[in-house]
């Protein structure tokens, strides 16, 4: 399923980046970082056209030979990015959507933790566990 999951703060600083293959970490950081270009573009485009403001899912941001990158922006401008392998053609758009919803709800749980400081990177065990599951395809 997902090979990399990232949460990015409203000022575009990473809060959480996790990927399946630790050797590819730098590569994925770059990929997610580059995807922010598209996220910003889509966000500014959404701002202009008064579409459905409740639609948080941005859809496919970028697709290369190897990977597909999907994006999701919360109302507080927290961005979620999920990278999947292009080879995995069985993954449907709806499933990606579900993954983002799940991520959003877990993220909300993290933020609700009174001991969590929103400016810090996420280091929640539950969150980690969900992301691990997501990457293992258990969701």
């Amino acid at each position: 399923m997902a090979v990399c999951v990232a949460v990015i703060g409203k000022d575009n600083a990473p809060k959480y980046v996790s990927c399946l293959n630790p050797n590819m970490e730098l590569d994925f950081h770059y990929k997610v970082h580059n995807a922010l270009d598209v996220v910003e573009e889509k966000m500014s485009a959404n701002g202009k056209a008064s579409g459905d403001i409740r639609e948080l899912y941005l859809g496919l941001l970028n697709s290369t030979d190897d990977h597909k990158i999907f994006g999701y922006v919360t109302n507080t401008k927290i961005k979620f990015v999920i990278v999947t392998e292009s080879a995995n053609t069985s993954l449907r758009d709806n499933e990606v959507r579900m993954m983002f919803r799940r991520l959003h709800s877990v993220y909300a749980d993290v933020v609700c933790n009174p001991f969590y400081n929103p400016s810090e990177p996420i280091s929640s065990k539950a969150f980690n566990e969900t992301v691990r599951n997501m990457m293992a395809g258990n969701l």
């Binding site: 575009n12 600083a13 990473p14 970490e25 730098l26 950081h29 770059y30 970082h33």
Partner: peptide, 10 residues
Amino acid sequence: GEQWSLLMTN
């Protein structure tokens, strides 16, 4: 500017 520490360190 954007605090992508890993990238910056790299």
